[in-house]
Design a protein around this nucleic acid. Structure first.
Length: 191
DNA sequence: TAGGCCATCTGGTCCT
DNA sequence: AGGACCAGATGGCCTA
């Protein structure tokens, strides 16, 4: 059983459009917003249309529009829009699942104390950052042990490490880690 | 019960 | 044109 049980997630059924009457006089997902209404509309478990006119910067979009310049994509019918929305929802779900898989892989890659407790996403990212920094300082420490007296590891050293890593990423993709470690070893040897 | 965390929906924007 | 990305919004579950 998961520590943060999502047992009721099963009750969170994907929106099917069936909880909304899509007959002509009724709305469909996004309709009210596209019509420019500022009213709150219950859509697929979410209330849309509240707090409009956000100050979002460029890129990424995200629920808010920019004043009168909202454009609407024309689709043939409500039914077609509905289908596209459902497909989009599914893709988004899959994308988030991939993201969560990546988070899980990261959790398993970084050592942490509370092994019985699942790390949250923010904890995972923070620990990963600290872990990387620690490893980097260790590696640079090894390197400095072989540097000429008085010479300390510099940012240039770290940049070289990064360069090695990026080079292997480009050449070998995900399989590069062991080779990268080998490279680091030789790097420390030559320093 | 409040707050944290999360999954999901959603629509605007970016990218191919 | 359509998919990917992004962030706001919402509601459910869990823990202190």
């Amino acid at each position: 059983m998961k520590s943060k049980g999502k047992a009721a997630k099963s009750s969170r059924k994907p929106w099917t459009g069936q909880d909304l009457d899509l007959e002509p006089e009724n709305r469909e997902p996004g309709t009210s917003e596209q019509e420019g209404s500022e009213a709150s509309v219950r859509i697929g478990g979410s209330w849309r249309g509240i707090l409009r006119g956000g100050d979002r910067e460029r890129g990424g979009g995200g629920g808010t529009t920019h004043g009168p310049h909202r454009h609407r994509r024309s689709h043939n019918s409500n039914k077609e829009r509905n289908v596209r929305r459902l497909e989009s929802n599914e893709r988004e779900r899959q994308r988030m699942h991939k993201l969560n898989n990546a988070f899980q892989a990261l959790r398993e890659a970084i050592p942490h104390v509370k092994m019985d407790k699942k790390l949250s996403k923010i904890e995972t990212l923070t620990l990963a950052e600290n872990y990387i920094k620690s490893l980097t300082s260790i590696i640079l420490g090894i390197s400095s042990a072989r540097l000429p007296p008085g010479e300390t590891p510099t940012e240039a050293s770290a940049a070289r490490l990064l360069q090695f890593y990026q080079q292997h990423l480009e050449e070998d993709g995900d399989e590069s880690l062991s080779q990268f470690l080998t490279q680091i070893h030789s790097f420390s040897q030559e320093s």
